[in-house]
């Protein structure tokens, strides 16, 4: 999996955006809780306000979160994941023509073991050669 530069940049940028959104949401919940507590300290029921206060998030934090997550997802998905075709026909064709690399180098096809084996020995020719050689040996002796 080789990440391309644009997707790297996209992942980095949207991660920062997501971290910022998370921090903002945390600060907002802290702020609204303390503000509500300070506001409600004089009144009779301090608990009711603190429970309901953290439930609404400002629109800009919501939008930032959604934007950063969708950008991050786009960045991750488009960062060079490789799938191989499952049908034997297209996979074997791709390997043979060099479009699909096997272990990072060009393969010679799936049936290389069958294609590049030694041929049959021509036993008649070898026997004839041996007989000729024997004849020459016999003449010399």
């Amino acid at each position: 999996m080789a990440r391309s530069l644009p997707s790297k940049l996209l992942i980095a940028f949207s991660s920062i955006l997501l971290a910022h959104a998370c921090y903002s949401a945390h600060e907002h919940s802290l702020l609204s809780t303390t503000a509500a507590a300070a506001h409600d300290s004089s009144s009779s029921s301090p608990h009711s306000a603190t429970i309901t206060s953290g439930s609404t998030l400002p629109l800009d934090i919501t939008l930032e979160t959604l934007l950063s997550v969708s950008l991050l997802l786009v960045g991750i998905v488009s960062s060079g994941w490789e799938l191989k075709p499952i049908s034997l026909r297209s996979y074997a064709g791709g390997v043979e023509s060099g479009k699909i690399l096997v272990d990072g180098k060009k393969g010679k096809g799936l049936f290389v073991g069958l294609e590049e084996r030694a041929g049959f020995a021509d036993i008649r020719k070898q026997r004839k050669e041996f007989t000729d050689w024997m004849k020459t040996q016999g003449r010399v002796e």
Binding site: L18, A21, C22, A25, G54, L57, T65, L66, V69, I76
Partner: peptide, 14 residues
């Protein structure tokens, strides 16, 4: 990977 990221977003959004 992506579902964990979606979980982060859902948690931030509350």
């Amino acid at each position: 990977l992506s579902s964990s990221l979606l979980g982060i977003a859902a948690g931030i959004l509350g």
